[in-house]
Simulated assay, not measured.
Amino acid sequence: MTTPQPIRIGIMGTHSTGKTTLLKRIEMELRAHGIPVARTGRLGKRAALTGLPKMQHHTATSTEWIITQGIADEIAAIRPDPEPIQVILADRAAWDALAYFHAAEEWRQETQDPLERERLRLLASTQAPKYNLLLAKVLDEALPVENKHDYDPRYRTLVDHHTHTLLTEHEIPHQRVTGDPDSQAHAVELALQLCLNQTTP
């Protein structure tokens, strides 16, 4: 018996732009409407716990781990009756890892083997059709970063640049989300209406 595929909503963007917070808002709205939902995430932290490099030290190996683990998490979130998951919220869609990797290369002034870059691009591209809605956070450098985070500001900006460059160059449908409250509310409403229209009561 084939399990119905849930709606997938992915998010991407540079760090400390409110990706997880936005997905939590969407999750709360969906649950309030009685829609079973699962949220994946913490990929960067989990990769670091395995000893893989992170942030500006990302490599092809750590990038591949994040992409494939994200795929595995989304598959694992699909559960059968009695209450099948109808929506999966993916914190860090597959293209996100690629943007972080390209930014790390530029930050280090390195260039990966073209065949390796293409292999990772193809891996990420296999996931693009799965997302019913892809949200792309936009960096607002005027907003402060929490003191507990010691981020390299140049790398953070590079990730933002590569995120939106990848989406544009590969013509991937997405919704840009800024730090403006109206933009965030619009993203939540888009996700809610998508799910209400396509899920069973």
Rank of each mutant, 00 (worst) to 15 (best):
P84V: 15
A99N: 03
E110G: 00
H149P: 02
E116Q: 11
E118I: 00
D180K: 05
I26S: 03
A38Q: 15
R42I: 10
K24S: 07
P53R: 14
A47F: 02
P36I: 14
Y100G: 03
V188R: 05
T40V: 10
G10N: 05
P173Y: 03
L192K: 05
V145M: 12
Q198I: 00
R31M: 07
L133K: 06
V37Q: 05
H162S: 04
L122F: 10
I67H: 13
Y155H: 09
G44K: 04
Q56I: 05
Q5R: 07
E116M: 06
A103V: 01
E27F: 09
P129A: 03
T14V: 04
D96W: 02
T40L: 02
P144H: 15
G44E: 01
T63G: 10
L192H: 04
H161C: 01
R156T: 12
L43M: 09
L89V: 14
L166I: 12
L115S: 09
I75D: 10
Q193R: 06
D140L: 08
K54N: 13
I11E: 00
T63A: 06
K130V: 01
P4A: 15
H15I: 10
Q198R: 13
T68Q: 15
P153T: 13
I75G: 06
T3R: 11
W95A: 03
T50W: 03
A72V: 14
P201F: 15
A191L: 01
N147M: 12
T126C: 07
N132K: 09
H15N: 08
A97C: 04
K130Y: 09
I78Y: 12
I172V: 04
I35V: 09
T163D: 07
N147W: 12
T63L: 02
T21L: 09
T126Q: 10
K137W: 00
A128I: 11
R92I: 04
L194F: 03
P84C: 11
A47W: 01
V177Y: 06
L115Q: 12
T21A: 13
D182P: 00
I35F: 02
E83H: 14
